[in-house]
């Protein structure tokens, strides 16, 4: 059950990757990266359940935080031209 859900999420990440490669603008690419990142959070949680390792939830939480910060940092850099 968890395995097929993980496969479906990987399939949808591949679909989004098409937009990331083709995307005519930088905005589209950042959008694709952000969406793939949030899918990765769910994927990590599912893998933790498949292999019965509850500590994967901590990694999923940390990954969600990192993904959000990365998107915001990149957009701030693009908008202001600096990060300080």
């Amino acid at each position: 059950m968890f395995e097929s859900a993980a496969l479906a999420i990987i399939l949808s990440a591949i679909l989004v990757l098409y937009r990331g490669i083709r995307g005519p603008r930088i905005c589209d690419r950042v959008l694709a990266i952000n969406v793939i990142g949030t899918k990765t959070v769910v994927l990590i949680a599912l893998i933790g359940f498949i292999y019965e390792r509850p500590h994967f939830m901590d990694i999923a939480l940390a990954y969600a935080l990192i993904n959000f910060i990365a998107t915001i940092a990149f957009l701030k850099y693009r908008e202001m031209g600096r990060l300080d």
Binding site: A5, S12, A13, L15, V16, R19, V35, V42
Partner: peptide, 14 residues
Amino acid sequence: IGCFFIIVASIGII
């Protein structure tokens, strides 16, 4: 239901 919504979101993004 969750996987359905996630796949529809990917199709929408494309």
